[in-house]
């Protein structure tokens, strides 16, 4: 379990450029949960995940992971963090070496490392034949998968994903999400401004605006509260925007749900003809169709 208690953070403290990034943030992440952190650029979400991964030091409050403080180096083996554009961090000569980098650092045996590399490549949907290729000869989508496989290879119990699908095309995106989110999977903290992904994947959402936690709840509860989305500068998912454009005030997370709601609100022809309107020149509306 991850527990975040009264966490605050200020950049350039004590200078004229002082900027408060986080104010008094508290929440828990239970084992197996998918918790999304949503917010506009500058809302504090990057600061929060860097604190959770122990990459920057806490200033106030406490973050514990399985009872260990994030200041304890031991959490490094429990928490994997996939930054935006992780492919920029590839550096080894072959795909296999790049993926093996962290398990090797953790002192695993060669057989174990090799098994982990194979397993991680399978998990992200990379062809095993690419193991000896140079990562720099691969397409952008493939490089992204190599970088993520490198994180999965050390089997972190917690996975922090920062906009993992940015810049990927729809099939590559679906593939990656399936690989990361299908069970068995890590406990996931998903940072995203894609409300469609949050609607489909998250158990709970934490919304940040100007460094404050302005909402914690399920995606369904969030999308029922337009004022929170507006305040946080977030857009509702496309299905919700469609419902609004059709003048329907309801919450839908998927196209299936939206379809049923629309069908209920607009019964199909000919039943949707207002009963008060007399048929034109005596003909029944069906004949007009």
């Amino acid at each position: 379990m991850i527990s975040v208690r009264n966490v605050g953070y200020t950049y350039m403290r004590g200078t004229p450029f002082e900027k408060t990034a986080l104010k008094n943030i508290s929440f828990d992440v239970a084992d197996g949960e998918v918790v999304a952190i949503a917010g506009h650029t500058g809302s504090g979400k990057s600061t929060l995940i860097q604190l959770m991964a122990g990459l920057i030091d806490l200033q106030s409050g406490a973050i514990e992971i399985d009872g260990l403080s994030v200041a304890d180096g031991a959490i490094r083996r429990k928490v994997g963090i996939v930054f935006q554009y992780p492919e920029h961090q590839l550096f080894e000569e072959t795909v296999g070496d790049d993926i093996a980098f962290s398990p090797r650092n953790f002192g695993l045996s060669d057989e174990e490392i090799s098994a982990r590399v194979t397993e991680a490549m399978r998990q992200v949907g990379l062809d095993a034949a690419l193991k000896s290729s140079s990562p720099f000869e691969l397409s952008g989508g493939q490089r992204r998968r190599v970088a993520i496989a490198g994180i999965l290879a050390f089997k972190p119990k917690y996975l922090i994903l920062d906009e993992p699908t940015a810049g990927l095309d729809p099939p590559a995106k679906e593939n990656l999400l399936r690989n990361l989110f299908d069970k068995p999977r890590a406990t996931i903290i998903l940072v995203s401004h894609n409300m469609d992904d949050i609607a489909r994947l998250a158990d709970r959402v934490i919304v940040l605006a100007q460094g404050e936690n302005i909402f914690t709840g399920t995606p369904r509860q969030l999308f029922a509260r337009q004022e929170i989305l507006r305040r946080a500068g977030l857009e509702p998912p496309p299905v919700m925007k469609l419902l609004h454009a059709l003048g329907i005030d309801a919450v839908a997370l998927t196209a299936d749900e939206a379809e049923k709601i629309i069908a209920r609100n607009h019964l199909p022809h000919p039943l949707n003809q207002p009963i008060t309107r007399p048929p034109k020149d005596g003909r029944s509306p069906e004949l007009d169709a």
Binding site: L242, A255, E259, I262, A263, H266, P268, H269, A289
Partner: peptide, 11 residues
């Protein structure tokens, strides 16, 4: 959505 609704009989 238009496709889905057509399948449900919407004209």
């Amino acid at each position: 959505m238009s496709d889905r609704l057509r399948k449900r009989g919407f004209k």
